[in-house]
């Protein structure tokens, strides 16, 4: 095998750091409406720049592919985690509340009181409409899927079907 894995690690780490830095800069300056599309675009920029640079520097295609594969693995992991930071995952929020209660714990009633003040559905529906995945009729409050929404959700439906599972509880 001729691949230099140390170079692949170094290149991927630099690319990932560049992607994260760009992500923080863009988000703090002006948060995009279509979060995931914007995030994919943000992480594609260092990758594209690397391909351009390595072509000029004469790096072998296999070596570039090795760095990009590791970079892609890091980037998709981060992109999958990002929604939990962006949209207040109730599970993580509950853990924070339970953790804050210390050793004495918290009753279900206490948790419910705090949960009642959190927006559980409206922000998610707004996200879906903003992202062009669902349409909402303002007058009737009726929601329906857009073609983009159908394309987006189909892999999840297929995945659960392949795993032999019913739709998740949300």
């Amino acid at each position: 095998m001729e691949l230099d894995f140390r170079h692949a690690f170094t290149h991927a780490a630099v690319l990932f750091a560049a992607g994260l830095a760009l992500h923080v800069l863009v988000w703090r300056r002006r948060r995009p409406d279509r979060h995931l599309t914007a995030l994919l675009f943000v992480f594609a920029i260092p990758g594209a720049a690397f391909v351009g640079w390595s072509g000029a520097a004469g790096v072998s295609t296999t070596q570039v592919a090795a760095a990009l594969l590791l970079y892609a693995a890091l980037a998709v992991s981060y992109i999958q985690v990002y929604p939990a930071a962006q949209a207040s995952s109730p599970t993580l929020w509950m853990l924070l509340v339970i953790g804050a209660s210390g050793g004495k714990g918290i009753s279900e009633t206490g948790l419910r009181e705090q949960l009642a003040s959190a927006s559980m559905v409206r922000d998610r529906i707004d996200d879906l409409v903003r992202a062009g995945l669902a349409l909402e009729d303002a007058a009737s409050g009726r929601l329906e899927l857009t073609p983009a929404g159908r394309r987006f959700v189909s892999p999840f439906i297929l995945l659960r079907s392949a795993l032999g599972l019913a739709p998740g509880e949300g």
């Binding site: 995945l133 669902a134 899927l145």
Partner: peptide, 9 residues
């Protein structure tokens, strides 16, 4: 979000 989209499908 996925559950809402699945229901809307």
């Amino acid at each position: 979000r996925i559950h809402i989209l699945t229901r809307l499908s």
